[in-house]
Amino acid sequence: MEYRVVILLILLSIIPFFQYSIIPLDLAMKIIVGIADMNVSNDPAATIITHALGSCIGVSIYDPAVRVGGLLHFMLPDSTIDPQKALKNPWMFADSGIPLFFKEAYQLGAEKKRLNVKVVGGSQILDDSGFFNIGKRNYMTLRKIFWANNILIRAEEVGGNVNRTLSLELSSGKVWIKTSGDGVREI
C-alpha cells in the first residue's frame, strides 16, 4: 500500500515540470498576426494565426512544394485615402498589402503557380444604406487584384456578420477557421 502512495506522490510532483516544459513549446509554435499585419514563414513547426477578422480580410497562401506559407490581415480596400499610412504600414490596405505579401512568400522560395490561396472574412454590419459595407469593398478590391494577377482562390468563406479566426498549419498547409459559436473547421 505504501509504495503506491510513494509512486502517486512522485507522479504528482513531476506533473508541474511537464506543464512548464509543454506550455512554452506550444507558444513557440504559434505565430500571431495582428490587425493590419502579416507573417510569412517556412518553419514547419509553426502555425500562423490571426484573430478578430470582422470586416477585415485574412488571406492565407501556401506552397506545398517548399512548405512556405503566410497570413495577411488587411483592414481597408484602398490606400489612396492615406498614402502616408500605406508607406508606414502597407499591410493595412488591400492594394498596398496584397502584392507585397506575395513577394515576401516568393522570397522564401514559394512560386505563384503552386500557391494555394484561401480568403476569409469580410463580414458586414446589418445595414442597407451601404455606408458601412467595408467588408464587401475589401473583398471586391481583393478580387480585382487577384484577377489582374491571375491568382485563383482555392477556398473562401466571406461575408455574413460573424467574427472569424484564421490559422494556417505550415507542416501540412491545412487552413482552419474558427467562428464564434460554430467551433473550428477546415477549409
Partner: peptide, 20 residues
C-alpha cells in the same frame, strides 16, 4: 469599432448601422 474586429466576440457584427 465592431467593423475593425478589435476585441470582437461571438455576437460578431450582428448589429444595425444607422445610415440616417
Amino acid at each position: 469599432a465592431m467593423i475593425t474586429g478589435i476585441g470582437g466576440g461571438a455576437d460578431g457584427l450582428a448589429y444595425h448601422g444607422d445610415g440616417e
